[in-house]
């Protein structure tokens, strides 16, 4: 779909370990420094809990754990990317804990390769495609899929 029309979009990149990821900037609301997260009992490990975002209670997901990587120690670079996700036909605000936020850059749709069918450690359905920046691959995430209700609310099953 994306390949037929050539339009330029902006992406925010962040890292998890060595990997570089990107999400469309329109999905990102703001980036916060790491703050105390209140754990909600009986929820999966990657659901870190909730934070207070100016009076709103916002859930935070550990992206490393969500993608099956090992948990990292918090550093000064650790931050929470606040995003707007459409979940169950509702706009929901959600935080993603990442190792570091890199930059905002533009990509033409022509520069985006479809996700490879094999050889990725990440579920291909989570990817919109692959981009490249200075010889480094960037995984462009389909954040609505990553944060879909079924992905996150496996909660109850694990809880009980």
């Amino acid at each position: 779909m994306a390949a037929t029309t050539s339009e330029t979009r902006q992406y925010l990149t962040f890292t998890l370990g060595e990997e570089l990821f990107a999400v469309e900037i329109t999905k990102v609301r703001e980036v916060l420094d790491y703050t105390k997260i209140t754990k909600v009992p009986q929820t999966p490990e990657f659901m870190l809990g909730v934070i207070n975002l100016r009076g709103n209670v916002v859930p935070v997901v550990d992206m490393r754990l969500k993608f099956g990587l090992s948990q990292n120690d918090r550093t000064v670079n650790t931050c929470i990317v606040i995003m707007e996700i459409s979940m169950e036909n509702e706009m929901t605000v959600l935080g993603a804990l990442v190792d570091a936020v890199q930059e905002v850059f533009e990509l033409e749709s022509g520069q985006i390769e479809p996700p490879p069918k094999i050889g990725t450690w990440l579920k291909t359905e989570f990817m919109l495609g692959m981009g490249k920046r200075d010889d480094q691959f960037i995984i462009i995430l389909d954040i609505d899929k990553v944060f879909s209700y079924t992905e996150l609310a496996a909660i109850a099953a694990i809880g009980s």
Binding site: T38, V40, P41, V50, N56, T92, A153, I155, S160
Partner: peptide, 27 residues
Amino acid sequence: IKNLGVVYRKAKGLSGATILGDGSVAL
């Protein structure tokens, strides 16, 4: 009382969250 939102709709034993004086969240 603050709603815990869609993500935690199925979380059991909780009726919501609240924000404490120091800005942190309590369930």
